[in-house]
Simulated assay, not measured.
Amino acid sequence: MRAGSETQKGNTTVNLLIGLAIVSLCFLAVWWYEKQAVESVPPQFADELEDEGSAIEEPDAPSGAIPEDPPDTLPGDEDEDIPPTDTPLTDAQGDVFAYLPVGDLLPLSGPGFVDDTVYRPDIVFPTEDRVFLNSQVYRYGGYQGSLNGMEGGQCEIANYDYPWQDTFCEKRSRNQDLCPGGGHEGLDIRPASCTKNVHWAVAVEDARVIDVRRHWVTLQTADGTIYNYLHLNMGALEVALGDDVAQGQRIGVISNDFYNSDGSSVATTIHLHFEMYENYVASDGADPLFTKVNPYMTLVSAYDAKLRE
């Protein structure tokens, strides 16, 4: 009985060793197969495998944290209703705002004056409604309109459309400091419609009314900038000499008031003539000159901000 028991125990040990050997061979075979598979992956995909592995090993969100929602759209499946970033800027009537470069005047209308400075980036636009900057003299309704084939009245629909056009240094009857051969040191702003005494002009900044005479109102800011508003209805102003006005406050309605120094009336179109005085340096090293400057790009900037609001 003892010899048989020893023999049986020996067989059991042998079987156990054989089983362990078989398992070891299986693990070795699996290891060799995976090694060959990884080494056979082309180099351009090796990084992708590593990235995927590291992504799997990222820890879960800490307790109490709200996991991020999956994106609403996948790449290549963007929402077509989202407008592109370069969507044209439109006014209240849905018309696309556009403007010609500074200094680009109508042919035969004057030398122009290229100054792309935005002198006061924080002003509001000087009118409540949409407007059109263009010539009151060299377009329809102006006494020089025929020079460019624009014969007709000031209410021609073509006058009430974009793009804007600069009118600083248009040729007029006399020269000015910045406009030799020109003379118009301001910008003509046509109101939204060909109707006087309807559309409001407003203060572009907090300022004081320092002059009211004939056909213009003058505002000056605390740091010295001056603005002139011409051709308002002078009999129906909302401000008086010496008043302090707040940015955006109504000054008066746009009209066609225009008077000589003797009080006689001068014919003109319905528009706001807008002027701006600033320190202007003609060239590097030159002394600053406090004078009228071209506010075209300043008004473009203010109108752009107005439409975006």
Rank of each mutant, 00 (worst) to 15 (best):
C179D: 10
P180E: 01
P180S: 00
P180L: 02
P180G: 04
G181P: 01
G182Q: 02
G182M: 06
G182K: 05
G183C: 01
G183S: 02
E185P: 06
G186E: 14
L187R: 14
D188L: 12
I189C: 11
I189D: 10
I189G: 10
P191C: 04
P191F: 00
P191K: 01
P191S: 00
P191M: 01
S193T: 12
C194P: 03
C194W: 01
C194A: 01
T195R: 06
T195Y: 08
K196S: 06
K196D: 03
K196T: 00
K196Y: 08
K196G: 03
K196A: 12
K196N: 01
K196Q: 07
N197M: 14
N197W: 12
V198K: 11
V198E: 05
W200D: 14
W200H: 09
W200R: 08
W200V: 15
A201N: 11
A201M: 08
V202S: 07
A203D: 10
A203P: 13
A203N: 14
V204P: 06
V204K: 15
V204A: 14
D206L: 05
D206C: 02
A207W: 04
A207N: 03
R208Q: 09
R208T: 13
R208G: 04
R208M: 06
V209N: 00
V209I: 00
V209C: 03
D211T: 13
D211F: 03
D211R: 05
V212Y: 04
R213G: 08
R213V: 15
R214T: 10
R214I: 13
V217Q: 06
T218N: 12
T218Q: 12
T218S: 12
T218M: 13
L219C: 13
L219D: 13
Q220H: 15
Q220Y: 11
T221P: 00
A222W: 03
A222Q: 05
D223M: 09
D223S: 05
D223F: 14
D223N: 07
G224M: 15
T225P: 03
T225F: 03
T225V: 05
I226T: 09
N228C: 15
H231R: 07
